[in-house]
Amino acid sequence: MRTIARLAVLTLVVGVPLTGCAVPQDRLEAVRKATERFATLHTAGDFRAACALLTSAAREEAVHNGGPTCAQALADAELPEPGAIRSTDVYGRQARVELATDTYFLTSFPGGWRISAAGCTPREGRPYRCLLKGD
């Protein structure tokens, strides 16, 4: 009984805060790799492969707004040259990666991290303005 009580207190005091604050290194690394992969494909002009790394919402929005295909919309979006990663924030299933020239937002799926918005610049007190994003 005493062991159970100790475990309960340990869970309360130590375990619960960790739910909110601990971001394992491999999650940060997975977010960075997904960002770099997308940036590399985009810079190389392989827009079709880059489209496969977008969330379905971002792909649909790209087709809806630019089209006629996701690859064509991505080519026309004129995303800036990404540059080096400056910072990475991961909270639950959402992430933000700040690059030298713009910011990416990512969402976690069972198959890995996908780009939900790219070419984003901050706006005071409002959501980022993004050249490419899901609805």
């Binding site: 309360l12 005091v13 619960v16 805060p17 739910t19 909110g20 604050c21 924030d89 909270y91 639950g92 299933r93 959402q94 992430a95 933000r96 937002f105 969402t107 918005a117 984003c120 901050p122 409002r126 959501p127 980022y128 993004c130 994003k133």
Partner: peptide
């Protein structure tokens, strides 16, 4: 302990919600 846990998990929950809306 639980107030500290509330503050840490609350910050994480709000941050996740804000990132989903393309906010800092």
């Amino acid at each position: 302990g639980s107030w500290l846990a509330q503050s840490i998990s609350g910050a994480a929950a709000l941050s996740e919600e804000r990132l989903r809306g393309l906010q800092e």
